[in-house]
Design a protein around this nucleic acid. Structure first.
Length: 477
RNA sequence: GGCGACGUACCCAAGUGGCUAAGGGGGAGGUCUGCAAAACCUUUAUUCAGCGGUUCGAAUCCGCUCGUCGCCUCCA
C-alpha cells in the first residue's frame, strides 16, 4: 500500500494467507497469465521453504460479460466455456510447474455469499440498487484511490469513465448486474442477475481468510480498478483493514509494449511451449525481478535455455565425477568452494528475502556453478573432494526445488529438448551412431569419426568425448 | 491532461549511500582435447540517459531536462 518495500510481518506469526487473482475463463492463457501464476507460485514456495504455513487461494471467474459473449459465439453454455478454459489453464500451469492453490474458488459457487455482502453494503449505506442493478457508491468510502494513488476528483475529470445516467457518479461500479434476456442469471433480492466482477474477491477472500489477510496479489493491471474496488467493498463492509501487503507483478512486453489481448500482440502459453521446454519458460520469467517489465523474445528464451543447459551440463559432470573419482586423497585448492558452500544459503535467502529477487538468486546459483567447475578442473580425488561435490549438487537441487527449476535429471532435460526441437532420431539410434563413432575412434579413423559427429551436429546433437565414453547433448540457444 | 514506473557494457539483467558495479549471452585471446564439445583463465562499463544539487563519500538521495513504458476502459 505504501508503494515501498516493507518488512514482512504476517498477521498471525508463522502463518500467511495469500489471495491471488486468477483468470477469467473465457479464452486460452497467454504468457502474461503465466507470469502472474509463476511469480506467486514461487512466492508461496519460498515462504513455505522458510517455514511459514501458507494458505493460498486463487479464484477463477466463471461468469462475466466476456464468458457470456464467448458462449454466444461458440453456441455453448457459459458453464461449458468456463469449464473448457479452466481445464486449459490447469494444463498450462501444470506444464509450467505451477502448483495448485489450496483453495480455488469459483465465482458461481459463491453467489449466496456475494448477495449477502451486497445486502450488507446496502444496509450500511455504501451501495444502492437501481433497476435491478446494484452499485457501490464510491463517494461514501473515504480513502478510495489509496492503492492506485488516484484521487476521485482526477478520475471524474478524466473523460474515459463511462457515463451511465442511472449511477449517482460515473465512478460508482456495479456489484450486481440485472441479466438481459437469454443471459444466465441467479435470483436475488433485486431480481434476476449476476454478480459484478469485483465482488467475488471480496466475498470469497473473507469467507476463507476473514476480513483481513496478509498478501493479495495479481498483475499490475488489476491495481485499478479491480483491487481499488475490492478495498472499497471489503473495508466498507467489514470496517477493518482488508489486505496487509499488496503485490503486483509487472507485464510481459513485446517490442516494449504490454502483451495483451486487446493489442493482439500476445503469445499463448501453448504456442510458446511448442517451441520451448516448459522449464525454459519458467526460468525466463525468473530472470527479471517480478515487478519489472520483461521483454518477450526468442533471444531471451534462447538465453534462458542456454543458462539451464549450463546447469544440467554441470550436473552431468558432477555425477560423472562422483561415480568415477578415485579414493586416493588428492588435495587441490578447495577453500573458495568451501567458502561459497558455507555462504551460499545465506546469499540465496538474502536475495529472496529482498522482495523475492529471483534474478539475484540465479546469479548466486551460477557463481556456485562456476566454482564447482573450477574445483573439478583441478582434478581432485578422495573422500573430502567427493563430499564437497555432493554437497554442491545437493545445495543446487535444494534451491532449484524452491524455484521449481532444475528438477530433472540431465538425461530427462536432453530427452525433453529432443522432443521440443523435433529432432527425428530415437535415442537408441543415436546410441548406435555413438558406438559406431567409438569404433572408428579406437581405430584412429578420425575422418569416419568426424563424419558421424558432423552428421549428428546437423541434427542439433552435440557429442562430448570424455575419458570413459561419449555423452550426447542437444544444441541450445 | 492526471498519476506512476523505468533508463546500468554489444544484448539481457542484479545492485538503491562507502570494499574490485553480481550473473547469463556475445566478442577477442589462452589452457585442455586426435580434432571438437564442455569447463576454466584473461580480456570486453575509471562508469551507471544528461545536467545541476545534498554529502567526507551517490549508479544509489533531491531537482530539472531528455527518452521509453504503464495505469486512468476489459486486461495477468
Amino acid at each position: 500500500m505504501s508503494g515501498d518495500k516493507e518488512d514482512f510481518v504476517p498477521l498471525i506469526p508463522g502463518r500467511v494467507n495469500m489471495y491471488v487473482c486468477g483468470i477469467t475463463a473465457y479464452d486460452v492463457c497467454h504468457l502474461g497469465h503465466a507470469r502472474s501464476a509463476v511469480v506467486f507460485d514461487i512466492i508461496k514456495r519460498y515462504l513455505r521453504y522458510r517455514g511459514f504455513e501458507v494458505r493460498h487461494a486463487r479464484n477463477i471467474t466463471d461468469i462475466d460479460d466476456k464468458i457470456i459473449a464467448r458462449a454466444a459465439k461458440e453456441n455453448i453454455s457459459t458453464e461449458e466455456v468456463a469449464r473448457k478454459y479452466t481445464a486449459e489453464y490447469y494444463r498450462d500451469m501444470e506444464l509450467l510447474g505451477v502448483s495448485r492453490a489450496d483453495i480455488e474458488p469459483n465465482a458461481t459457487d459463491h453467489i449466496a455469499e456475494m448477495i449477502q455482502t451486497i445486502q450488507g453494503l446496502i444496509a450500511k449505506g455504501f451501495a444502492y440498487p437501481v433497476d435491478g442493478d446494484v452499485y457501490f457508491e464510491v463517494s461514501k468510502f473515504t480513502g478510495y484511490g489509496k492503492l492506485s494513488k488516484k484521487n476521485p476528483a482526477d478520475l471524474l475529470s478524466g473523460a474515459r469513465v463511462d457515463v451511465d445516467e442511472r449511477k449517482k457518479s460515473p465512478l460508482d461500479f456495479a456489484l450486481w448486474k440485472a441479466s438481459k434476456e437469454g443471459e444466465p442469471f441467479w435470483e436475488s433480492p433485486w431480481g434476476k442477475g449476476r454478480p459484478g466482477w469485483h465482488i467475488e474477491c471480496t466475498s470469497m477472500s473473507s469467507k476463507y481468510f476473514g476480513d483481513s489477510f496478509d498478501i493479495h496479489g495479481g498483475g499490475a493491471d488489476l491495481i485499478f480498478p479491480h483491487h481499488e474496488n475490492e478495498i472499497a467493498q471489503s473495508e466498507a463492509f467489514s470496517g477493518r483493514p482488508f489486505v496487509k501487503y499488496w503485490m503486483h507483478n509487472g507485464f510481459i512486453t513485446v517490442d516494449r509494449e504490454k502483451m495483451s489481448k486487446s493489442l493482439g500482440n500476445f503469445f499463448t502459453i501453448k504456442d510458446i511451449l511448442d517451441k520451448y521446454e516448459p522449464e525454459v519458460v519458467r526460468y525466463f520469467l525468473l530472470t527479471a525481478h517480478y515487478r519489472s517489465p520483461i521483454e518477450f523474445s526468442d533471444v531471451q528464451l534462447n538465453e534462458a535455455e542456454m543458462s539451464i543447459d549450463r546447469y544440467y551440463t554441470t550436473v552431468m559432470r558432477i555425477n560423472d565425477y562422483i561415480e568415477t573419482a578415485g579414493d586416493r586423497e588428492k588435495a587441490v585448492p578447495s577453500s573458495e568452494l568451501e567458502e561459497m558452500l558455507t555462504s551460499f544459503k545465506d546469499k540465496f535467502h538474502h536475495a529472496m528475502n529482498d522482495d523475492f529477487n529471483t534474478a539475484q538468486a540465479l546469479g548466486y546459483i551460477f557463481e556456485l556453478i562456476r566454482e564447482v567447475n573450477r574445483f573439478l578442473d583441478a582434478k581432485p580425488s578422495g573422500q573430502k573432494a567427493k563430499g564437497l561435490v555432493v554437497q554442491t549438487r545437493d545445495l543446487l537441487a535444494e534451491v532449484g526445488g524452491v524455484l521449481n527449476i532444475f528438477n530433472k535429471t540431465a538425461r530427462e532435460w536432453y530427452s525433453s529438448l529432443m522432443k521440443v526441437k523435433k529432432i527425428a532420431l530415437s535415442e537408441s539410434d543415436l546410441q548406435e551412431k555413438i558406438n559406431e563413432r567409438q569404433r572408428a575412434r579406437e581405430n584412429k579413423d578420425w575422418a569416419a569419426a568426424d563424419n558421424v559427429r558432423n552428421a549428428l551436429a546437423e541434427k542439433g546433437i552435440i557429442l562430448e568425448d570424455k575419458k570413459d565414453g561419449t555423452a550426447w547433448k542437444i544444441r541450445v540457444g
